[in-house]
Amino acid sequence: MAASNSAPISAEARAALGEAIRLVFARWTVLQVAVKNQWGGRDSCAKANQLGESILSWFCRSKGPHFFEDLVVMMEDKIVESFNADLDHNSVLDVADQLLFIHEQCLQSNYSPIEKLKNSHVQGNDVSQSREIVADDSDIPNDNDDTSVMNDEAAAAEETAVDSNPAPDADGWTVPRRRGRRAN
């Protein structure tokens, strides 16, 4: 994938990028569920903040170019290390792509994507609005249950936290993928 520009970042752009990372993380449903459910222990919120600081440092202190694949690997490694979990790979890809785009805009002193984030309402992605995931069978919706309706983001968060049966590849092999918390 394309690399982001290797130009140095100004203090103003650094501050804006830090704010953008916090805003993107607040909308990252799976990360918010991990924090709420304390997948990283009692200091899960601090670990999420540290992840954001690590990303900001990566953008600001490392000499570019900044490659998409490097950001994804760093994020996934930090998530496994901090939360003992493999979050949904697609959401990590989406967040990395969004952060690289915002970084590029900050380098050009274009802060409109951050303003858009600030002005957009967080719909269903905030921890307070995320549905808690429990392993209880009573939580499985049925057709006659009016409480089975939930927003798409909460459903996506639940789907990423629960291991599903992976489809076999072209050769008929099935490789199970670990989801959610790892057992110690």
Rank of each mutant, 00 (worst) to 15 (best):
P113V: 07
S120A: 09
C106G: 02
K116V: 04
E104L: 06
E104P: 03
I133F: 12
K118R: 15
H103F: 15
S112M: 14
Q105K: 13
N119R: 12
S130V: 10
G124F: 01
F101N: 09
H103V: 07
S112I: 08
S112L: 14
L107E: 11
K118A: 00
E104T: 13
H103R: 11
V134K: 10
Q105C: 15
N110I: 04
S120R: 03
N119C: 11
H121E: 14
L117H: 08
S128V: 06
K116A: 05
V127F: 05
S109R: 05
N119Q: 14
Q108L: 08
Q108A: 14
E115L: 04
E132L: 13
G124S: 06
E132R: 13
E115K: 01
I133V: 15
R131T: 14
H121R: 14
K118G: 05
I133H: 12
I114H: 00
K116L: 00
Q105D: 09
E115H: 07
L117N: 02
V127T: 10
Q105Y: 02
P113C: 05
L117S: 05
Y111M: 07
V134T: 15
S120L: 01
L107F: 13
C106S: 10
G124T: 00
K116Q: 10
Q123D: 11
N125A: 15
S120Q: 04
K118T: 00
K118L: 05
H121K: 13
L117V: 04
E115W: 02
S112E: 14
Q129D: 11
V134Y: 09
I102D: 00
S120C: 02
R131N: 10
C106Q: 07
S128L: 11
H103M: 10
V134R: 14
N119M: 10
I102W: 01
S128W: 03
Y111G: 04
E132N: 12
Q123S: 08
G124Y: 03
E104R: 10
P113Q: 07
C106P: 05
E132A: 13
L117D: 04
N110F: 01
P113M: 03
N119W: 04
Q129T: 02
N125S: 15
F101S: 12
E115Y: 03
Y111L: 09
L117A: 08
Q123R: 12
I102N: 02
V127Y: 06
L117M: 11
V122K: 02
Q108V: 05
V134H: 11
N125R: 08
K118H: 06
V122C: 07
E104D: 15
Q123I: 09
E132V: 13
